[in-house]
Write a protein that binds this DNA or RNA. Structure first.
Lengths: 138, 138
DNA sequence: CTACTGCGCTAAGTCTACCAAGCGTGCGCT
DNA sequence: AGCGCACGCTTGGTAGACTTAGCGCAGTAG
C-alpha cells in the first residue's frame, strides 16, 4: 500500500507547512491539539497515521477545516470543502496552490494588520518560535 | 466522557439499523466493509470506536455518505450533508426522521422495483439473512 | 564559562482497535 | 431424529496509535 504511505507523508508535510505558516512551534501546536509533541513530530514526518480525532484537533488548532485533512487522507470522497464564513480568509490564502510560501506569509500579515482592531480572535504566542534549524547529518 | 460514549452507542445503533434496512446480515456487511464480523458486532453495540477508515468502508458498503457517520461522531462540525447525485434516493429515504422503519422499507422496496430494469447497481445478496433473533437472557 | 530555556527527536512503555478461532443457537433438509 | 449451515457473540492475541522520560543542540542571560 504505497498509496496510503504517500498520502500519509503528504499529510504530514502539509501539517508541518501549515504549522510553520501559522508561526507555531511543534510543541505549541501539540499543546493546542492536545497531543504529545513527540507524537506530533512523527505524524509530521509521516511515521504514524493520526486518528480522525487527532486530525480534527490539529485542524482546529491550525484553524483550517477538518474536511481538508480528511480529504487528503482519502477519508472523504471528494471535493474541496467550502471555506467557512468567518475566518476563511487566512485559510483560503494558506491553501492557495498558486501562492508561494513567502507570498502567503506576506498576505496573511497584511490581512491581520488590516483586521487587527476589530473582534480579534484570541491567539497568543507568547514567544515566537525560533525558526532556524540546522539539518541533521544525512 | 459520557458524551463520547453516547455518541458511540448512537453510531452503533444507527449502523445496525441501516444494515437491517439494507437487508444485510452482520457477516455480509462485515465482508463488504472489509472488517471481521466480531468486530463489526462490537462496533454496532458501541463497545469499540471504529477508526475513520472503517467508518468509510461501512458507509460505502451501506451506500450512505461517510460524512454522515463522521458527523455523528462529532468529527465534522457540520450539518447533514447533501445527498449524492445518483442513488441518493435510498439514502434520503433511510435518513428521513419522519419515516418509520416500516415506511422506509416499503418505500425502498417500491423504489427498487421501479428502478429494477435500468442500470442496476451490482449488489448481490445470494441469500437473504434470517431476520429473527431471540433475545439473550438479560 | 555555566545555567537556563526552548527546539525537535529517540526510546520504551501503555492502551485499544482490530483479527482469527471457536462457542451456542435456530432453521431447513432428508 | 440427525446433519449442515448461517446467525450473532465471547475469547485470547497482535499491532499500532499515543504517552512519558530523556537525549543533544542552539540561543540568550547572568
Amino acid at each position: 500500500m504505497t498509496l496510503a504511505e504517500d498520502r500519509l507523508k503528504a499529510l504530514g508535510e502539509f501539517i508541518r507547512s501549515q504549522r510553520r505558516l501559522a508561526n507555531l512551534s511543534l510543541r505549541q501546536l501539540a499543546r493546542l491539539a492536545k497531543v504529545s509533541n513527540p507524537y506530533l513530530s512523527q505524524v509530521e514526518r509521516g511515521i504514524y497515521k493520526p486518528s480522525a480525532e487527532v486530525m480534527k484537533h490539529i485542524a482546529d488548532a491550525l484553524e483550517i477545516s477538518a474536511e481538508n485533512l480528511y480529504t487528503r487522507m482519502g477519508l472523504l470522497e471528494g471535493r474541496a470543502p467550502a471555506p467557512r464564513a468567518g475566518g476563511g480568509v487566512e485559510e483560503a490564502v494558506r491553501l492557495d496552490p498558486r501562492l508561494s510560501t513567502d507570498q502567503k506569509e506576506a498576505l496573511i500579515r497584511v490581512y491581520r494588520s488590516m483586521t487587527a482592531g476589530r473582534a480579534p480572535r484570541p491567539r497568543r504566542h507568547t514567544s515566537a518560535p525560533r525558526t532556524v534549524r540546522s539539518k541533521p547529518p544525512s
